[in-house]
Amino acid sequence: MSLTVENILRGTGLGPMQSVGQMQVIPLTGDDDATYAPPELEVGTHGYGSVLLRNTHDKPTIVPYGAGWVVKQAAQDHAIASSAFVEPGAERIVGNAMCIQQTQPGLIKRAKHALTILPARLRAKALAIRNVDQYSKLWEHITAFNKELGIESAANLVTFLTQFQKQLDEFVAEFELVPRQIGAIVLVSGEVVGIERAPSAAYFAATWEPLVRVCYGSLAVASKRSDPPRTRLPFLALAKGLDALRAALEDLRVREDQLTREIVDFARSLRMKRADQADDTLGDAQLWTVAGSTLGGQVVTRGDAVSYASLVLA
């Protein structure tokens, strides 16, 4: 069974591309599907590798894969490898969760902790080993990830978050949500590195900060390029007057819109294979893992409709 990005984007519109440094975001707009609440949960750890999730909303929610909780308590930060449904008012224990802070002992006290979402590359690794029942399963990947960024430390994601805090904070500030935004196509260095579709604008708003800050921000941080990406058109006006300058700006906007459509058309054509079995179900909703040559991730479908999708660089 296969799935295209065209299926995922069905029913969405495009906002104007936002572009800062190596990162670019094309907002996806659309109507709210009120079925799901944002993943604002009470979270704690029962033991190493065991995360308790409590949905305090009166609607079910989808917890994104690679969701993590980095806390200020003297406790071992954790993340989950696969997405998960949590029913309204219900608790759910994810028993094959992962430690993301090797050197820190202690359990997370149950509370509403801020959500983070693993760096895109670690998120993909985590998804691949989602069924492995070992709390240290991501350590070697975290160590390698840190090393690539010049961080010599144990498998501790906090080291990365601390070292690159300034840049990561800037990503949050620089990319703004537009009205009715329910998703985004994310580019780094001119390449599509992620596609996000949420059930509603409220859901997307709740996940956007951890996505742009850590998940995709990490890719921008890792990019060694300093020149603007080819998808960020320069303004090279040699205008002699303000009217000519205005015309040059208008022309540039037209070309930027055209470029945005080309990028999205390319993304639409991307095809992914769907796993044979659903990872989770809730009523008629099913959670599937999908993978293609460039992007992979998880989607939630109800019949043919896609309610949720999160695809990152495979």
Partner: peptide, 17 residues
Amino acid sequence: NRPAGRFAEVVAAIRNM
């Protein structure tokens, strides 16, 4: 962000004029 740096580019063009 639409895009970052466009304001500075336009200011530079204005000053060049």
